[in-house]
Amino acid sequence: MLDLLDSIDTHTPLGRRNKAMLELMYASGLRCSEVVELQISQIDFSRQLLFIHGKGGKDRYVPFHDYASDLLEDYIESDRQDIMMKSQQEHDYVFVNKFGKPLTNRGVEDIVNRIVRDYDPTKKIHPHTIRHSFATHLLEQGIDIRVVQELLGHSNLSTTQVYTHITKQHLKEVYDHSHPRNQQNH
């Protein structure tokens, strides 16, 4: 995931938008619909929190880190501003298309598809893959599953447990590599 994110070309305003958007998705585990609905008023840069209107009308606060914050702030203050002025659009949606209109779910999917095609055409990565990676990576780092549940906005823990299958494999690999009795077999 990090290699994919690092591969994004940021030499154009839309490239910087793409980088800010995908980094924010990975930083906060946002659904595609939450990204396209995100408005500037929902971002608290001083506390690095997003106020997300999630699925089923469930609202939550989600943190984002310094790296995503810097990219997002630069995009909003420079590139988004330029796009909006050229197209004479006026609205509060954070992520806009080249015409200054709010991005759609399909627009995000197309952006991810183009980035993935340029990165590695053999890979199948969708916007939800970024959310999945967010959850899996947190779980692999030992974050409590209930915290991940809250960050993802899941009502039921069983929904979050879908993301633990890779973590179980990771745990098995660490165990196999680390247990003293098992190391004798290597």
Rank of each mutant, 00 (worst) to 15 (best):
G29I: 11
H165D: 09
L22G: 01
I115P: 01
F95L: 06
R181N: 03
H126L: 10
V96D: 05
Y163P: 00
I83L: 13
Q161F: 05
S69Y: 03
Q81A: 12
Q161C: 06
D79V: 03
R80H: 12
G142K: 02
G54Q: 09
G57K: 15
I8M: 06
V62K: 03
V174E: 14
R106S: 15
I143Y: 06
S78W: 07
T129M: 07
G142I: 10
L138F: 11
Q39I: 11
M84D: 05
R117L: 14
E140H: 08
L49D: 01
H165A: 09
P121A: 14
R47C: 00
H11T: 14
M85T: 13
D59A: 13
I125Q: 01
K58L: 07
H186F: 14
S46H: 11
R114S: 11
V148Q: 04
I143D: 01
F95K: 01
S7R: 11
S155M: 06
R80S: 07
R47K: 12
G107R: 02
S7V: 04
T12P: 04
R181W: 03
G107P: 04
R181F: 05
M25F: 11
P63A: 10
Y61I: 03
I115K: 01
I125N: 01
Q169N: 10
R106M: 15
R131I: 07
S69G: 12
F45A: 10
K58S: 02
K101A: 13
Y163G: 02
R47L: 04
T10P: 02
A68T: 04
I43N: 02
Q169R: 15
K101D: 15
K58G: 01
H170D: 11
E150D: 11
V112W: 05
E37D: 15
H128I: 08
L30T: 08
L151C: 06
R117E: 15
S69V: 00
K123A: 13
H65S: 09
H126D: 09
G100H: 06
P13H: 09
D82A: 12
N113T: 08
E34G: 06
D59N: 15
C32E: 12
R17M: 05
